[in-house]
Design a protein around this nucleic acid. Structure first.
Lengths: 189, 189
DNA sequence: GACTAATTACACAGGTCTGTGTACCTTTTT
DNA sequence: AAAAAGGTACACAGACCTGTGTAATTAGTC
């Protein structure tokens, strides 16, 4: 009988709190003391679950790396729906840009593993777009996927600065034009 | 006789060095000690020119805020040329994204003055696009200008993570389609 | 009850950071 | 030569940060 670690609760609570604070205030701006105090645990407990702050940072980013789940909706709706859900997230008060871009901006060249996971995330979304475009029989699916990825990150960066959900609508409008130009029949967007 | 401060050399040297280090390594990652040591001056001298690190940060961002200069070239070339010059900057090894976006990402909600100057910068570029589009008699110059601004920040964010100048070409291709769709006659892209 | 594992409180080391105080020096101006 | 301005060296305060050591305490399991 493997002991079945039936209590990952603490580790999850730490990760949850670290995620919230890292994302909202910045990684360097939040100390492990702050995280532990926020949960109400001792710093020692935190270090019993994560060997270092760097490990916590990696776990934070890994947790943020959720691959887009497959959906039954038509490809074109999935693509354009991306911008609708971005607009919804922009409207929430706790949106502060892309955690991967922010981490790279903050930690710079210093941390190569952070950059690696950021690249992986960006590429996974680009490939998600590409596969949908292939289903739509778009000729240059690779190129258009890159352009859509640029639009996504562009409206995220703009919203980070401006706090304006309209940036998502602008990106969606641009995406609609690009799709139509590629021969995709787009519903009344 | 006003004493005519004929020697702003030191202040400029400090700003220059702070700019380089802040931009390349991050604002929080660089201490005033590091900046002073890099120039070879004492920390006291630095504090004689800037009352605090915050003042130095503000001066750094203010220095980065250069309005796009008027050009004699046709509007459409100016717009698309933006992406060419971005591609050139992406290829340089010392490009690390948009300093304003990075500063907002790093300093978070903490510093409102940083966000203000970042918004001003983003808006100034959007207005530059808009005025060029008005010259081109584009109907929805406001909307298209926003879309172009999104493309600019999108390829910058993508390049920050991926270090891939091709992101600028993708953005340019998208911009070309958007311009053509708005009725602008675009030269052989 | 006895054993085990997790958690706690708390002090502390060693480092970095911002910002100041002070006394001395060097250069320029008058 | 005298005065003023700017720079230097250097110590230091006070805060914060990561990470560790240790002994006591709690909770879960046999």
């Amino acid at each position: 009988m493997a002991p079945l670690p039936a209590k990952p609760a603490m580790k999850d609570r730490i990760l949850e709190t670290a995620d919230r604070l890292f994302y909202l205030q910045g990684i360097r701006a939040v100390g492990v003391d702050t995280i532990a105090a926020e949960i109400g645990i001792s710093k020692r407990t935190l270090y019993n679950h994560f060997p270092s702050k760097d490990a916590l940072i990696s776990a934070y980013l890994a947790r943020r790396f959720v691959a887009p789940r497959p959906s039954g909706k038509p490809p074109v709706e999935q693509i354009l729906g991306t911008f609708d859900s971005l607009e919804r997230r922009f409207s929430a008060r706790d949106f502060r840009g892309c955690p991967f871009v922010n981490a790279v901006a903050e930690l710079g060249t210093e941390d190569q593993s952070v950059r690696k996971i950021a690249i992986a995330f960006k590429e996974s979304r680009r490939l998600w777009f590409r596969d949908l475009l292939v289903q739509l029989a778009v000729a240059d699916a690779e190129g258009l996927a890159t352009q859509l990825a640029v639009l996504v990150d562009g409206c995220i960066a703009q919203d980070l600065v401006r706090n304006d959900p309209a940036m998502a609508r602008a990106a969606k409008a641009a995406a609609t034009v690009l799709l139509a130009n590629a021969g995709v029949k787009v519903g009344g967007g």
